[in-house]
Each structure stands twice: as C-alpha cells, then as structure tokens.
Nucleic acid binder design. Structure first.
Length: 456
RNA sequence: GGGCGUGUACCCAAGUGGCCAACGGGGGCAGACUGUAAAUCUGCUGGCAAUGCCUACGCAGGUUCGAAUCCUGCCGCGCCCA
C-alpha cells in the first residue's frame, strides 16, 4: 500500500478501538513521525488452542492499524506464558498444557496473522515466541531480578486475581498468580532487546500491561540508583519520578459487546474461530451477516478497513432500507475477505444467495458444486436410497443436524426440516426421486443450518 | 494438618426419604411474524425399541420396600485456624 499513513490514535478513536491508554498525549508524540522514528508495538496471544477466536481479532486489528500508521507491529505468541495460563477473565484454574501442544498451537496460529495482514494489504508482521526467552529464565533469577519489583499487595489488588481470591468456588494457584510477572517480563525483555515501546491488548490485559511498564521503569531506576533495589518494591509509588525514565506505553482495546447483552463471538455451534478448519469462510460470512442491526455500524468500524466515509454511506443506506441489509453484506464480505481472501468471500456470498433464495432445485450444477465447498457436506452410498429409502430421523443425526432421535422427531414434527427447499413431512424417507442432478440432496434445518449430501 | 461449610442438568438455582428426569430464571433450539435482524407470542430442552425402560443430582460404598434427599469414606472448592 502506498497510501499515506493514518494517524494511529485518531484511527483507533473513531473506530471505537481505544479503551484505555497510559498516556494518550505522550503516545501521540511518540508516534508522531513514523518516517524518521518508526516505533514498535506488540500484542500477545495465548496458544491455548490451535486457532484464535473472533475476539482476538480486535487486538489483531489494532496491530494492523499500527502498521498502517507506518510503525512496526510485533506479534508475540505466548508459548512460554501459555505454559502458565493467564487468570485474566478466567473463572477457573486452567489445566496445564503440554509443551508439544503449545508448540503446535503456536505454529497453527501464525497463519492467522499472515492472512489478516495480507488481507489488509500489509507485509507479514514479525512474530516472536516468548518461550524463546521465558524458558531460559531460571526461577531464582526471576525471583531476584523481577519478583523484587512486584508487591504482593499490588498483585492481589488486580481485578482478575481479586475475583478469584474472593470467589467461593474457585481459588487461584500460585502458578496463575505469578502470571502477571511473566507478562511484565515479556514487555521488559522486548523493550530492552528489541526496542518495543508500546503494548496493545484487550481491556482485560490492562493490569498485565501496566505491570510491564512498571517493571521497565523500576528496573531502570534500579540501574540508575542501586539503593532502590534494596528498598521494598511496594514503596515504589512514594519515590519521585526519575528523570529520563524510559517511556513505554500501554493501550487497550474495548471488550466487544453486543447490544442485546449476549456474548460476542458465540453461535449455536460454539465459538467463532479465525481458521477455516474450525469455522469455514461460509460460516464466518453467515456470522457477520447475522449481526443485529444495532451493532452493524460498530462492527464495520471494528472489523473492516472501510473508511469513515464508506461506513457513513452504509449507515445512511441502512437507515433508509434496513431490509436490504447493505451494511450487513458489506461487513460480511470485508470481514470474511480479511481472513480468507476476496475469492472466498465472494464464494461465501454466492453460496448464501443460492441457499437462501429457496430455489435449490433450480440451481445449475456448477453453482451447486461451489456451494458444496462452503458448507458442511458428506458422501453416501447411493444404494441406501433404493428399496425402503433412508429414514430421515436417523439421517438427520448422521449428518449432524440433530443431536438425538428425540430432537430429530421434534424438528420433523415442527416442519423445520426441508429437502431441496421443500418442507419435509415426518414420514418422509429419502429415495432416488429426491436427488438433484441425479446425485445431490440438500438438507436444511431451521432457517440457517444446511447440510449437502452427495450420493454415488 | 484441624474446624466449619459447599458440590444438582449448558449456567444460576429450588428440592433435604416416595407426589423427581427433578420448581423457577437465564441461555440454546424450533415454529409464527419479519429482513437469514430485533422485539413479541408458542413449543421443546438426558437417552431409547416410548402409556414403558435405562442413565443422571461430585465419586465410591451402605441403610431402606424406596435416596438428589439419611450414613460412611474419598475427591474438588470456599472460609477460619495451624
């Protein structure tokens, strides 16, 4: 991209991506001249799964905007911190993961960052793994060099810790209690070794981010004044600010909420993921398309790179003809393209159009083939259709559209199942006469759950 | 290590010997209305060969004709003490 760099803070502000900042004016000055002084910002990601969820897209977008502003983003995979587990936002102690699992997850998550940055027309971001430095840290060294700078009094005031401390059902282990120290060390390490001066993260990360900034300041103070190291870290607040203190910045993104109070990023099938193996392009396209009206503009700002003017135009269009859902289509298209590319976004849109037009039976064969790639499908032996045919009740379970026979019967009784676009009766059995193009049967449960079957 | 509590379905939560597959709320799913939205109304929400059977109230035993409910042990969690 050769466009002029955007103003990072201003961009975050109008998009609603700015929640808290340790020092907005200071950061604005710090980032003022990307040409001469490109700055480095990092955000950390937990390798608790082989993919990231849509909630993680928020800090990723923040990194994208940082890059668009002409600065250099750094992605830090929590290969080391993941071995401990962040208690932030967690109501229960986590089970520890094996190092092999974590390493595999880190590897899988890389692709997401590469995809999003490519989708934004940006070069690949640099990616680091904090296991590289955290694993080398010895326990005694950590206690002496880092632990001294942390006051337990302060640590137990931290929201995520306090919650667990007062929660009757769940306590917190020493391991997770120590998490904050590790993340703070990350920032200090990256500051020292790589000149990273800004940390971005979700609002639940505020405590960890500030702890990092504090650590950097205190380590610096220790170096300048050896006496400081002998004092209790808890009294650090009483010491006057030291001149020429290394200036680092923390910035958090808001937690994305839905206007109906529901949890963002959850669907009937669970969390929405950022890799196609877990959430197909079609599924994520549908997720965005089904955004409730109240949230549509907010999400356009958060999850697309459309300009302010473009979004305002969509807002006007939506206000005028809400039923047309132009804004929804724009969100679905751009947000899907960001992750999976333009071609996939177009395919997902075409598949949706084909399926929801209700005219499945009239679709040309080649279009059906494309739809196949986008939604769940399965292959079955054609011989099963001969004779008595295939019992729908059991078949719905087989393809995953119903969880049990009881449920399958209920769906059929409610006439919420359709075959090739036509309501199915409870008595219906699948036979060769149901085949489209002599090989396909399209099943639909409710409004949105589709499954295509191929018989050969 | 000791004392006192607590553990019910996806979540919260009632039930403290038979009326319990378990009240109520939330969530979820489906139907109607719509725009694949929201709101609203209705139904469903352990499984099955289904006027019955099986599995389930932290786990394992026991008492009883009969247990989510009583007893014993264990495990998890919380509070207090050490």
């Amino acid at each position: 991209m050769t466009t002029t760099p955007i103003d990072f803070l201003e961009e975050l502000r109008w998009r609603g991506l700015l929640h808290q900042c340790t020092d907005e004016q200071g950061l604005a000055a710090h980032l003022a001249d990307p040409g001469a002084n490109p700055r480095r910002a990092y955000a950390g990601f937990d390798p608790t799964a082989d993919s990231l969820t849509i909630g993680n897209l928020v800090p990723i977008m923040a990194l994208v905007h940082f890059a668009r502003a002409g600065h250099k983003p750094l992605v830090v995979m929590g290969g080391g911190t993941g071995m401990i587990g962040d208690p932030s936002g967690k109501s229960a102690e986590r089970t520890l993961m094996t190092t092999e699992t974590i390493a595999a997850n880190v590897a899988r998550q890389r692709g997401i960052f590469e995809a999003v940055f490519a989708g934004a027309g940006l070069p690949e971001p640099e990616i680091a793994n904090n296991a590289d430095w955290l694993c080398k840290l010895s326990y005694l060294d950590a206690l002496r060099d880092i632990g001294k700078h942390f006051s337990v009094n302060m640590m137990i005031q931290k929201e995520s810790v306090k919650e667990r401390l007062h929660n009757r059902e769940q306590g917190i282990s020493y391991t997770e209690f120590s998490y904050m120290i590790l993340q703070a060390y990350d920032f200090a390490h990256l500051f020292r070794k790589q000149g990273v001066t800004v940390q971005l993260g979700g609002s639940d990360q505020w405590g960890n981010i500030v702890a990092g900034s504090d650590l950097i300041r205190r380590q610096h103070a220790t170096q300048r004044d050896p006496r400081a190291s002998t004092g209790s870290a808890s009294t650090a607040d009483n010491t006057p600010p030291i001149p020429h203190t290394p200036h680092t910045f923390g910035l958090t993104n808001p937690l994305v909420t839905k206007s109906d109070g529901g949890k963002f990023g959850k669907t009937e099938t669970g969390a929405v993921w950022l890799t196609r193996e877990r959430t197909s392009p079609y599924a994520i396209y549908q997720f965005w398309l089904n955004t409730t009206d109240e949230d549509i503009i907010k999400f356009l700002k958060l999850f697309t790179l459309l300009t302010k003017d473009e979004i305002e135009a969509l807002e006007a269009a939506h206000a005028e003809r809400p039923g047309a859902r132009e804004a929804h289509r724009a969100l679905a298209h751009h947000a899907t393209a960001l992750l999976h590319g333009e071609a996939e976004a177009v395919n997902a849109a075409n598949a949706a159009k084909a399926l929801f037009s209700g005219q499945i039976a009239d679709l040309p064969k080649d279009l059906l083939a494309e739809v196949f790639a986008e939604i769940p499908s399965s292959d079955h032996p054609r011989t099963a259709l001969e004779g008595n045919g295939v019992c729908l009740t059991e078949f719905l379970i087989e393809v995953g559209l119903a969880k049990s026979k009881r449920e399958a019967r209920e769906f059929l009784a409610n006439s919420s199942v359709s075959i090739n676009g036509h309501r199915a009766t409870p008595e219906h059995t699948l036979t060769p006469t149901d085949l489209l193009h002599d090989e396909i049967i399209a099943l639909r449960r409710g409004k949105k759950a589709w499954h295509l079957t191929r018989w050969s």
